[in-house]
Design a protein around this nucleic acid. Structure first.
Lengths: 164, 164
DNA sequence: GATGCGATGTTACAGTGTATCAGCACCAGA
DNA sequence: TCTGGTGCTGATACACTGTAACATCGCATC
């Protein structure tokens, strides 16, 4: 997989929907889990959008043409997808993005949320993880999960509108 | 102020309500802001509890005996308090804690949320900040705010119930 | 007194998330 | 084949979180 820490074009890169769906299918087969239509559709909706989607947005997108998907169902699908690392929840936005990486379970993710274009990029940093581990150890705290979200301006938007 | 990265007793330490109120009063005087009764009461409610409080919890605590505080008012007070760094919002819980530190504006905070006792501790780590800055710079991302919350078990709970 | 301003009160409503029960598909075992 | 269990989905209802809009009040200033 190519370098994710560089500025790149969302949707045209590794994080697109087809790849995400293929990975999900493989993962569910491996773990003997059901990759149902609803779960597939929810993942597809999230993966085709670089912006984070709310559960109700997803429900709306999947509804229509005689099909009605209630938010409850979307939440259940999202629970499944997040438990299996296929989708991440953005706590600061109450929204969800598809996972663009194929990373181990123990890796700490960093989400970069652009205030201008609303897109979300996902990266990892072993150095940050290390320092954080040290800090937690010093505090006598045993971590089980962490949330690291940064808001600001992404490289693309900085390029388009150079700071005044 | 003493070392916050060590295990310590909440409520009996520097983070207690009296200190928080005194600091708030000073800060508002300095900045020529109004430290009204509502704002004071909201801050006091949050500061007397080491667990994060929801806005509706606060509203409930402040209501009674002929006084009714609506959640809206609490939100406005919380907006004021967070803008001035007196209270922090815990994104992963949709809840608020009073700031136990007297730190500069640009410092990145780390929140340690204990799954067992529900208490929240607050620390800083220049090393994590540095590494994170490097990671962001490498990604061409210009940060304006960050959220770093860790869930796990605090030292006190680890001591009480040694891991099986 | 009149005016303007910020803070609060009040109502209404939008958005987010969960509880609960019912139906349905599918599989295993009698 | 029938039957019961399990897991997924549908549907309704509801609780929690947060905001919009407007009225009111107190206070400073003119």
């Amino acid at each position: 997989m190519h370098d994710h820490s560089a500025v790149h074009d969302h949707g045209a890169c590794c994080g697109n929907a087809t790849d995400a769906l293929a990975r999900a299918e493989r993962l569910c087969a491996d773990r003997d889990l059901q990759f149902t239509r609803l779960r597939r559709d929810v993942l597809e909706a999230v993966a085709t959008e670089s912006k984070p989607l709310g559960a109700y947005d997803i429900a709306e997108r999947l509804s229509g043409q005689g099909r009605r998907v209630a938010a409850v169902s979307v939440y259940r699908a999202l629970d499944f997808l997040t438990e299996n690392g296929l989708v991440h929840r953005i706590a600061s936005r109450n929204a969800f993005v598809s996972c663009g990486h194929q990373h181990g379970d123990g890796v700490g993710l960093v989400f970069l949320i652009c205030r201008t274009c609303g897109s979300i990029d996902e990266t990892t940093s072993p150095e940050v993880d290390d320092q954080l581990d040290k800090t937690l150890a010093k505090a006598g705290f045993k971590p089980s999960s962490r949330i690291l979200e940064v808001e600001g301006e992404c490289g693309a938007c900085l390029g388009h509108e150079p700071s005044p």
